[in-house]
Design a binder for these strands. Structure first.
Lengths: 311, 311
DNA sequence: ATGGTTCTCTGACTAAAGTCAGAGAATGAA
DNA sequence: TTCATTCTCTGACTTTAGTCAGAGAACCAT
């Protein structure tokens, strides 16, 4: 049945991979590193205008510490970067571009533009427009597919980051403001096993969304603290978080999922309805809530596959 | 004016390049060559089930002859390929996969599927469908952009290939059959400077289309022998060939472009009309023609930019 | 048959990319 | 203070990837 469709999709993706790595990937690298090893060029690019600490570079590019060190030494010898110790922690070193480094980066930039231009030039205006649109779509969806969901302790720095952002956003959007201490979940620690769980979504290691699940014994599971960072909205991440929570709730044995929300959060209201939640009478006295929803939980294994992508 | 739009498009393409090389390109290579150097893996892949001659491999992958030889030696030592001399020409060597080589290739295949799957898995069905559609579009258009147009002598093997394919196709599609000797251009050598020119379109070095231009002194320029290979139709190549011919005619000083065609070639008829040709009275007595068209030539520089993409 | 060409291979290199095992300084927790 | 940990760096390697200059066999046109 749909194994066949899936095989077709996989074949398409593979053809895409081949075409694109041939036409874009190889060119990309060799355009980039015309008079400089690709490794150095990538590093130069990744340092950015702001500067960056060495650890960050290693993580981002996935390189060995000794290797990065050597690359930096080489860039330093060419006068393209300066390496100094970070203000807070004197073990950590930060790299910044020099004037010459900026110029070199600008040259890479120009080449990157030339590559992009060479892809567009043979096409007529209508084709260009279509290519650009399709590229934007692919990019958006690949980005969506790159987001990974992890169960984290609510005290983990990434979890804290999300919870702060959640509170800050509610504070702005609700006419009443928002004070977590006054809400029904003053302590997110309640979202810790065995009383619940807390999901964090990350993109390239940066936290970009979260959702908590309360699992009170003998009572319906409850969605709490769902948030998605503004710059990754529209990627279907909220839906994915909900689906993941639902499947966790199902595995836990819950048969009903509930949540409450504020009338100001119109996008969330729409999502809950579209996802299959139905509005019900108030089941708690959360001071910030105007709407209460519930949804029967699909039995385990029936949910969409949202496992972590390989990397 | 549209410099601004172009800058926007270039920026989009660059973002795409970055996302895709990060997410697809790097993975692609390192998935592929997990326990084998990428170079060898690529070679193994490129040999294919049918076997291939060494020269073909070199061309396709753009590698040094010595390098390929060494890679083959290594694959041979691992028992993955056998190298023998080609039947026709004993200088040429052909490579075929052994049983073990096929198995290794199948393993690469599986990994490639796994990579594709890892891109799709985090997405919901609607997103998967959209991603696959957008990928197909990008791939099509990148393929279109990869086609290069060259002016070739009509006697060049690639030109001959196209002219033969042209004649064979007409022979099939016209109720009357087609005999080049009976047509008004029995000798394609007339499409040679200074009396004309002959364009060949190539994709990865293989000829996939052609178009000739007659430039009779003091008379309108005339399009002849336009053909596009079946498997690259729908990429806008015919239109691109027409545009290139028009701009060559303009540079030559022609102000009118003409052509004749057969009623069986419905796609061509549609293209000519869409491109701005208007049907006129017969201007010659070509036995295979049912329709005659002409179009005023845009002055030099006004045509779309169809210069050769970088590679 | 002869001379120029084509095709593949070998030997002798080089540069890039990356790995691994410490060493030494700074930090944080007990 | 002490001990484990974190972070960066150096030295000593290896593997990939690729280049270049011929050599030798086979082919092709004259």
């Amino acid at each position: 049945m749909n194994a066949e469709r899936e095989a077709g999709q996989i074949a398409r993706v593979r053809r895409f991979n081949r075409t694109v790595t041939e036409r874009v990937g190889v060119l990309h690298d060799h355009y980039l590193g015309r008079d400089r090893p690709v490794g150095e060029a990538r590093l130069l690019w990744e340092i950015g205008d702001e500067g960056r600490d060495v650890r960050g570079l290693r993580d981002r590019l996935g390189l060995d510490s000794g290797y990065v060190s050597r690359l930096l030494r080489s860039l330093e010898a060419d006068g393209l970067v300066t390496v100094g110790t970070a203000p807070g922690d004197r073990r950590v070193r930060t790299v910044r571009l020099t004037e010459a480094g900026r110029a070199e980066r600008a040259a890479l930039d120009t080449r990157s533009d030339a590559l992009a231009g060479s892809l567009l030039r043979p096409l007529n205006p209508a084709q260009r427009a279509r290519l650009v649109t399709a590229m934007a779509e692919v990019e958006r969806l690949l980005t969506a597919a790159t987001v990974v969901l992890d169960t984290l302790d609510p005290g983990h720095p990434d979890a804290v980051h999300c919870l702060r952002a959640y509170a800050a956003e509610l504070g702005e959007r609700l006419d009443t403001g928002f004070d977590p201490a006054r809400s029904l979940l003053p302590d997110p620690g309640e979202l810790r096993p065995p009383h619940g769980l807390f999901l964090v979504a990350r993109l390239h290691g940066d936290p970009v969304g979260c959702a908590g699940l309360k699992l009170p014994p003998g009572a319906p599971a409850e969605v709490k603290r769902m948030w998605v960072a503004p710059d990754v909205r529209g990627l279907g991440l909220a839906r994915r978080l909900l689906a993941e929570l639902e499947s966790r709730a199902a595995r836990h044995g819950s048969t009903l999922l509930r949540l409450d929300t504020n009338k100001a959060l119109t996008a969330a209201l729409g999502l809950y309805r579209a996802y299959g939640f139905e509005e019900v009478e108030a089941f708690n006295d959360e001071p910030y809530a105007h709407h209460w929803f519930e949804k029967r939980v699909a039995p385990p294994g029936a949910g969409p596959d949202v496992s972590v992508p390989a990397r």
